[in-house]
Design a protein around this nucleic acid. Structure first.
Lengths: 328, 328
DNA sequence: TATCTTTACTAATACGTTTTAGTAGAAATA
DNA sequence: TATTTCTACTAAAACGTATTAGTAAAGATA
């Protein structure tokens, strides 16, 4: 059904080269006559020719595809982020091959291999832990790489991120300013760098203000099963708590679900979330948060990656996006 | 950096064919000696050979990729759905090329063309309106197509969906059963089939029970700007309303945001949403809903598509997934 | 008229793989 | 010893495109 250049050439009694040149708007530079050009163009249109982009990519070395590797395309951070990325790249005629690692390094490795085989022109990666070697592999293959959200300090790559430490301090100050004198931190037990940075800022805040640090590490790999009860127990044991700071929105949601009482009221001290959520502004109590501005984040990632693709790989840099403190 | 079969062959002083056959585990059937096989295998491993999958696909006609076209990868229905799809396909060694149409037929067409050019082996599509012609094109290209969530009745394709009419009746009955005698329906003005089906069931319910139909059509293309005030005005005009049935969760969220009062309390009659949301169970008032079971939906889609790919295109069928009524 | 330019193309090669038909040499058969 | 059969490979074509060097014919120049 789908005709190839070869067939079209035969049917028009011209050479493949002619057809290819015309199709790629190189008729003039190749001195193809206007008449022939038109004849080819008309015929191509008539039969509805669509190039085989595999063959094209093989010949040109360009796939017009970039890879986007996130933790979970279904969550409220990466999903909308991916949409921005796609929209921005669509304008530049690029398409996105995405994949979710679910935090599993093995998945991540498979995905990276697959993308390299597919000859993506660049990769946008939110790394899981233990991915240093694979990041190196990407760079060895001369494929431009931009890392965002988290990174592995051991491999030098372009890195787009928010200032987790600063933002976390802002969060702490906010809680203090609204009267919390003994708020605790709820985070996960996996050592993702961005989580560590948020926690460390909390510890620093404690040191500076003399507040006692109270930290709960929930099990990343069995949140669903154990998270709720662990959190509930911890809160009821620590009666002096007067506020909770969750290092990410899914933890905050877990908090909301596990700590509410029968009557629907949740409890009587403020909650704070790192990362916003579309319903945080209508919950009771309202949830203040640090908001990662998705659009600037996506824009920067895409801009940096496209530049690498266009001009060749350059010395790694960091790009810091500032966050917003949303008081509610 | 990345070696090709050709180079490997030269370096080993054997033919390309030999290398290719060994790599593809056809050494035995091609009577390659064990020794040579091992020599090749060892070398291939040593240099870290990765096939160029573009060339491979060009030669074999298989891309091991399927296309997933949704409305918005960032929303709480398609995002998690996409994750299920990816997980299921990963097990079968397929990868996903996804794209969001944002409800724009032009985007959808571009995406479909791109995917056909990329030689995806099958397409999973949640159609926007006006896509009949392109669905035909996909089928003309002999690319297996499975449509889900919505469909265009004019083109016969495999179609995986929930029973919108039945589910909508369940919703209406539920509202009545909890005492709503005059509940209204809030939907959008675009004529997506699934939305029409939900509305028609409501109308049928009205006819059968003698309830007066009160329907608000919000503008699909300017929801953000006009939705909130339109809804608010409508509700305050229709004072006899004692319940609201939203035909999708994003409308319900819009309802929650626009109808709540300063004190945080939302209002005093029940809300019902078609489609669940991760926070509906902790809101006040609690939101009952029809839940589309994402996993069975995704499983069926993937199963049907893979079957089409394996055994060739078959006569279109419908697959109906039953929904759950979640009372809260 | 012999040479140089220009015009309007095309032939050939390359991209990296798969696959089938073919082949040289050794071993078996008659 | 001449023929057949195996063994262990390889040559060549194919997938569909892009690109560059080349060429025949016509026109311009001296």
């Amino acid at each position: 059904m789908a005709k190839s250049i070869k067939e079209i050439a035969q049917e028009l009694n011209v050479s493949k080269s002619t057809v290819s040149l015309v199709i790629n708007h190189k008729a003039e530079q190749a001195r193809i006559s206007k008449e022939l050009e038109k004849r080819v163009l008309d015929y191509v249109k008539k039969v509805g020719y669509k190039p085989n982009s595999l063959a094209k990519s093989l010949a040109t070395g360009r796939s017009n595809t970039i890879g986007l590797i996130v933790e979970n395309i279904g969550d409220s951070f990466f999903g909308p982020f991916a949409l921005y990325v796609e929209e921005l790249l669509r304008k530049k005629d690029y398409h996105v091959l995405y994949s979710s690692t679910l935090g599993d390094p093995q998945n991540a490795q498979d995905i990276i291999d697959f993308m390299l085989e597919k000859k993506v022109e660049g990769i946008l990666l939110a790394p899981t832990v233990d991915l240093e070697e694979h990041q190196r592999k990407i760079l060895e293959h001369k494929v431009p790489l931009v890392v965002f959200d988290r990174n592995s300090p051991e491999v030098a790559t372009h890195y787009v991120h928010i200032d987790n430490g600063d933002s976390s301090l802002k969060a702490c100050s906010h809680l203090k300013s609204i009267g919390c004198e003994n708020f605790g931190l709820v985070t996960i037990d996996s050592d993702q760098p961005q989580m560590l940075a948020r926690k460390n800022a909390y510890l620093q805040f404690c040191k500076e203000t003399g507040m006692q640090a109270r930290i709960l590490h929930l099990p990343y790999h069995s949140l669903r099963q154990k998270g709720m009860t662990t959190l509930r127990n911890w809160v009821s044991k620590n009666t002096e708590l007067d506020g909770l700071y969750f290092t990410t929105n899914y933890l905050c949601i877990l908090g909301l679900k596990s700590l509410r009482t029968e009557e629907g009221k949740i409890f009587d001290f403020p909650l704070f979330s790192f990362d916003d959520h579309e319903l945080f502004d209508i919950l009771n109590p309202k949830i203040s948060c640090i908001r990662q501005p998705l659009e600037p984040l996506a824009k920067t990632c895409v801009k940096v990656l496209l530049k690498e693709i266009d001009r060749g790989i350059s010395i790694p840099r960091e790009y810091v996006i500032s966050t917003d403190l949303i008081k509610r």
